[in-house]
Amino acid sequence: MGDNGVAGAESIPQSKVVVYCGVCSLPPEYCEFGGTTKKCEEWLKKHHPSLHGELYSEAAIEANLSTLSLDAQKRAEKDAQKKAAKAATAEAKEVEKKAAAKVYIKRVERNKRKYVTAVAGLEEHGLELKKVAKDLGKKFATGSSVTKMAAGGEEITVQGDLTEGLLEYIVKTYKGVPEDNIECIDESKKKKAAAAAAAIAATEAGLQGR
C-alpha cells in the first residue's frame, strides 16, 4: 500500500464515525442486502434524514441498477425477495414465541417457614439473567443468583418469599414482559392442596365403601 493514505498526512489522528442501521446493524448503504430493507429505510428516514435522502434518492437507485446486467439484476432481485421472506417469517416466529413465553414465579420451601423464590423464563423476553439477578438482589436486599434448573436452562433464585414483590417489580421495571404472561406458582401450597384433595377423595371413597 505504501504512502498513499490521505489520512496519514493529517496531523491529528481522528477516527471516522460510521452510522450503523438500528434495524440490521449494517452501515445503511448495505441495508439493501439485509432482507429487512423496508424497515431499515424507515429507520434511516427517522434517525438520519439527510443520509436517507442520499441513499434512497431515485438517482442513487438507478445508478445501482445500471451497473448490473439484466440477467444478474433479475437473479439479485429474486435472491433479495427470498431473503426478505425469510427474514419476515423469522420475525413472525420470534414475536409468536415471545407472546407465548411464560414467566414463572415459584415459591419453594427451603426449610420450614423459610422460602426461596425462583423466577424462570425471563430470558425469553430478552433479559439478561445475570443482570436481572443482581438488580433483584439489590432491590430486595437479599441474596439472588442465577441457578441451573434440573430440566436444563437457568432461572433466578432469590432468597426469601417474595412472590408478590417480584411480580410487581418485574411488571413495573421490565416493560417487555406482559403481566398476563407471568404466573405465580406456590409449590408448597400445591402439594398441600393436592394432599388435601387426595384426602377428601379417600374419605369419600371410604364413605362410599360403607
Partner: peptide
C-alpha cells in the same frame, strides 16, 4: 470503518 485508510484494500463489483 473507523480507519479505512490504514489497510491494504481491494474492491469488488456490485
Amino acid at each position: 470503518h473507523r480507519f479505512p485508510d490504514c489497510f491494504h484494500r481491494i474492491r469488488i463489483d456490485r
